[in-house]
């Protein structure tokens, strides 16, 4: 496994045992400061001075902890997670606002989806037959019956003659009329 991958998994793991790792590191640091202070005392410093100097050599306890935490985990993810939880807490405190916000967002999404599915079916998708551009329509002007389903024989005849003489492209009318047939 590559170094980067190993490091990533190790950092990911570290996120889930933060308390334990923090305690471990505090103890480790305390041991470090003790050893350094003991060394300083041996060199002739007063105990208090020895301890203070040890902390300076370390580079400050808080800073060291901070650097350790950043190296150990995934700071971006941890900060994001903190913010996320903060947001949840805030929302829980202001439940009515939360519900209103969800309601409005839901309404918006619902309306968009509805409009899009209509547009998608009517305008964006091709018609469900081959060569839809060759589709032509013919207005039924033969009297009482309107619509192919109820057409009497005569009007069928007149329709087929009309078809020959009176073809026009159906596309511009497809939204206005439901009466269409494929041109043979």
């Amino acid at each position: 496994m590559s170094d980067a991958l190993r490091a990533f998994f190790s950092r990911l793991q570290a996120i889930f045992s933060r308390t334990q790792l923090d305690e471990d590191f505090n103890e480790e640091l305390a041991a470090h400061v003790d050893l350094l202070a003991a060394e300083n005392e041996k060199a002739g410093m007063a105990p208090e001075e020895a301890r203070r100097s040890a902390l300076v050599r370390l580079g400050g306890r808080e800073l060291t902890r901070e650097i350790h935490r950043e190296t150990r985990g995934l700071p971006f993810l941890e900060i994001f997670w903190q913010d996320f939880r903060y947001a949840l807490r805030t929302l829980r405190r202001d439940a009515r606002f939360f519900i209103a916000a969800v309601y409005i967002a839901g309404l918006g999404i619902g309306a968009s989806v509805t409009i899009f599915s209509v547009v998608n079916t009517l305008l964006l998708r091709p018609l469900p037959f081959q060569e839809p551009h060759a589709l032509s329509g013919s207005p039924m002007t033969t009297g009482e019956a309107v619509g192919y389903r109820h057409k009497p024989y005569r009007s069928t005849l007149s329709w087929s003659s009309a078809r020959r003489t009176n073809r026009f492209p159906i596309w511009p009318r497809i939204l206005r009329s439901t009466e269409w047939a494929t041109a043979s």
């Binding site: 190993r6 490091a7 190790s10 950092r11 590191f25 480790e28 640091l29 470090h32 350094l36 050599r57 370390l58 580079g59 400050g60 800073l63 060291t64 650097i67 350790h68 190296t71 150990r72």
Partner: peptide
């Protein structure tokens, strides 16, 4: 800054 040792140790251990 002896504290930086610990960042290095974490990196190596990772």
């Amino acid at each position: 800054n002896q504290g930086t040792i610990y960042a290095s140790l974490v990196r190596l251990q990772q």
